[in-house]
Amino acid sequence: MKSMSDVIENYLKQILTQSEQDLIEIKRSELAKRFECVPSQINYVISTRFTIEKGYVVESKRGGGGYIRITRAKISDHAELLRQVSDLVGHGIDQRTAESVIMRLFEEKVVNKREANLMLAAVDRSILALKYPEERDIVRARIMQAMIESLRYE
C-alpha cells in the first residue's frame, strides 16, 4: 500500500506532466484539503521529493494569496546537466543526495539502468565503511566526481 506521501507525490508529478510549461502552482491548504491531511504533510512531500538534485525548482510565497510553484528544471544538453550535477556533488555528498543525483541522471537518460545501479552500488554507505560520516561523504563525492567526469567523455 502506498503512503500518503507517495500518493501526493504521484499526483503532483501527474499534473506537472500534463502541464505544457513544466510548471504548476498549487495552494498548500487546498492540496491538504484534497488529500485530507495537514499542510505540513504537503511541505514534507515537496521538500523531500521535489528537490534540485531530483530536477525540480520550488518557489514558495506565503500569506493569503500564497502558493507553491514547482517547475521541472530543463537542461539544454547532457553536458550542462553533468556540470550542474558536478557542482552539486562538490567535495562531499551524503548517500541520500547521491542517490537522488544518480536517479536524475537515469531519468534524463544520461545513464542507463545498469549504469545507474552500478553507480548506486559504488556510493553505498555499506561499501564505504569508514569510521566518520564526513570521511564517507568526501570519498563518495570523489567517486561521484570520477564517474561524472567519465560520462563527459563517452
Score class of each variant (00 low, 15 high):
Gly92His: 05
Ile68Ser: 04
Ala122Arg: 02
Ile75Glu: 00
Ala116Phe: 05
Thr71Cys: 07
Thr71Ile: 15
Leu81Thr: 05
Leu88Tyr: 15
Glu80Lys: 13
Lys61Phe: 08
Met103Ser: 01
Ser126Asp: 12
Arg114Ser: 15
Gln84Cys: 13
Lys61His: 02
Gln84Asn: 13
Asp77Thr: 00
Val101Gln: 06
Gly92Phe: 04
Met103Gly: 06
Thr97Ser: 08
Arg96Glu: 14
Lys109Tyr: 14
Arg69Glu: 09
Ser126Cys: 09
Ile102Ser: 01
Ile93Arg: 05
Ser100Ala: 12
Arg96His: 12
Arg62Ala: 01
His78Gly: 10
Arg62Glu: 00
Leu81Cys: 05
Asp124Val: 04
Glu115His: 14
Ser76Ile: 12
Gly90Thr: 07
Leu120Trp: 06
Gly66Lys: 00
Arg96Met: 13
Val89Gln: 11
Gly90Lys: 11
Lys74Gly: 05
Asp94Leu: 09
Met103Arg: 12
Glu107Gln: 15
Ala121His: 09
Thr71Gln: 13
Asp77Trp: 02
Gly65Cys: 03
Gly66Pro: 03
Arg104Gly: 02
His78Arg: 02
Ile70Pro: 00
Gly66Asp: 05
Arg125Gly: 12
Lys61Trp: 00
Lys74Ile: 11
Ile93Lys: 03
Leu118Gly: 12
Ala73Thr: 01
Ser86Tyr: 08
Leu82Asp: 03
Leu120Asn: 06
Val111Trp: 03
Val85Asp: 03
Ala73Phe: 05
Glu108Ile: 05
Arg104Trp: 02
Leu120Ala: 11
Leu81Ser: 01
Ile75Trp: 03
Asp124Arg: 03
Glu99Arg: 10
Val85Asn: 06
Lys61Ile: 10
Ile68Asp: 06
Arg69Lys: 12
Thr97Gln: 06
Ser126Lys: 15
His91Arg: 01
Gly63Ala: 10
Leu82Cys: 05
Asp124Pro: 04
Gly92Glu: 10
Ser126Ile: 14
Met119Leu: 11
Arg83His: 10
Ile75Ala: 00
Val111Leu: 13
Asn117Thr: 11
Ala98Ser: 02
Asp77Lys: 05
Ile93Asp: 03
Asn112Leu: 13
Lys74Asn: 14
Val110Cys: 07
Glu115Ala: 11
Asn117Phe: 05
Leu81Tyr: 10
Gly66Gln: 02
Glu107Asp: 15
Asp87Asn: 15
